[in-house]
Nucleic acid binder design. Structure first.
Length: 436
DNA sequence: GCGATCAGCT
DNA sequence: CACAGCTGATCGC
């Protein structure tokens, strides 16, 4: 009842106000059309889209946070201040800076903090201004999806150029690009502009595009374009192989393989079993045989993963370096990851503790962890976690932290279930907890 | 019938 | 192993 004054991306009963960072499903788990616990605060764009994801939602519950103003909210028990800042993740996505009796808390939601992106530059200015009024940020709830130095990938603009290059070099092919229900609009728009073509999307997605204000670029008429954006879950190597029996078609996944640093790929993954395993897992190994070394070599650059399939490192999450820059600006006292599981999950304090303000607790934690494991061992942990089958030995601190002391013996499935339910935060009293 | 949860998939 | 997401089965209300 009294626990959890406010909830961010969490929808269980008991809070006085609820905040939605953006409309992706892993942040709306528990939110339904009939949800009505308390007012829901979100960005204008999210408010516009939400009724189409949750038909019949009680719109009188919605409260708009304008992304460039500080809002003062009078709750039942206290007054809080909140500032929304563009998170540059997907349309409508925001970070939330809270100030109140509990101190100062910054919840990043999912975010992309590109150095050269104009929107991120604007967001940086806003954040810097907002931080002027704050003595110290006590806690950052961080999008730690790629909070590991092995994640090193280019800006979205650079990745978009790669996609454009791939399409240009296949002038006689149909092109299929896998996207989700929200996000990667900018990629499609860059393609459309560069190649002077329209992009096909499915009808619901066209409606979303219209809601977002994109009227002329997208179409549901297949005869108008050779480039189609389709739901990512709906296409696979199998789909592409079928399509190629009718006409030449390539697929592009703006994501895909982990974007591990080249050195690691050369040294560990390409020579080892990493790619083999990935190949065996997917539907695209027509026979269930392991791929031969030759086949692996034919994959060539990480970009072309199959005769008809390309992946491009287009990410809506910050890479390691961007997270680092973000934390240098915010300098929080404490850090908490909002993503509990990933193949390379590392307790964020491990790499970023040094960027936090030095208080004794932080310092102690940091030193302890440094002592326990060297960087090299972390990489080892990552490698063993990417293994498929065999014994998935516990790989130390990171995993046991993430599994939160659940009964042992259950591994990946339990792990991924955790991921789906672990986003978001409850903020209460003078300490902030993840609830449960 | 609906929501919650889970299995399985990409 | 994933960004995030879909379908379908089952269970309780």
């Amino acid at each position: 009842m009294e626990k959890g004054l406010i909830s961010v991306d969490r929808w269980a009963k008991g809070s006085e106000a609820y905040f939605l960072s953006h409309l992706h499903s892993d942040h709306t788990n528990g939110l339904t059309s009939s949800w009505s616990h308390a007012p829901l605060f979100c960005s204008p764009v999210t408010a516009k889209l939400l009724p189409f994801k949750f038909y019949g939602f009680d719109l009188s519950l919605l409260r708009i946070l304008h992304p460039d103003a500080s809002h003062t909210l009078t709750l039942k028990s206290t007054v809080i201040h909140v500032t929304a800042i563009d998170a540059c993740h997907c349309p409508g996505s925001i970070m939330l800076l809270f100030r109140g009796d509990f101190g100062c808390v910054l919840y990043t939601g999912d975010f992309r903090w590109e150095a050269t992106c104009q929107r991120a530059t604007n967001a940086r200015h806003l954040l810097r201004n907002a931080l002027h009024d704050v003595p110290v940020v006590d806690v950052v709830y961080l999008d730690n999806t790629y909070s590991n130095p092995i994640y090193d990938f280019p800006t979205r603009h650079v990745a978009a150029q790669k996609v454009i290059d791939i399409i240009s070099s296949h002038p006689d092919h149909e092109v299929i690009i896998g996207i989700n229900t929200l996000g990667k609009e900018d990629l499609l728009i860059e393609i459309a502009r560069a190649l002077q073509i329209k992009i096909w999307v499915w009808p619901e997605r066209l409606r979303t595009m219209h809601l977002l204000g994109f009227y002329d670029i997208f179409t549901t008429d297949t005869s108008l374009t050779r480039v189609r954006a389709v739901p990512q879950y709906s296409f696979s190597i199998g789909t592409l192989e079928s399509l190629n029996r009718m006409c030449p078609t390539i697929g592009i996944l703006p994501s895909g393989l982990p974007w591990i640093k080249k050195s690691l790929q050369k040294n560990e993954f390409l020579s080892g079993s990493f790619l083999t395993r990935r190949y065996k897992r997917g539907k695209w190994s027509a026979n269930s045989e392991a791929q031969s070394d030759d086949q692996i070599r034919n994959i060539g650059s990480p970009e072309k993963i199959h005769e008809y399939m390309y992946t491009v490192p287009y990410s809506d999450h910050s890479n390691y370096e961007e997270i680092e820059e973000f934390l240098k600006l915010v300098q929080p006292t404490r850090l908490k990851g909002i993503v509990a599981s990933s193949s390379c999950y590392i307790e964020p304090m491990y790499y970023f503790g040094r960027l936090c303000r030095v208080d004794q607790q932080t310092q102690k934690l940091h030193e302890e962890q440094r002592r326990k494991e060297s960087c090299k061992r972390e990489i080892e942990a990552v490698r063993s976690k990417t293994s498929f089958g065999g014994d998935n030995v516990q790989t130390g601190r990171d995993r046991s932290k993430a599994s939160k002391g659940r009964s042992s013996g259950v591994r990946l499935r339990r792990f991924s279930r955790l991921r789906r339910t672990h986003r978001g935060a409850k903020i209460q009293g003078d300490n902030c907890s993840d609830q449960e």
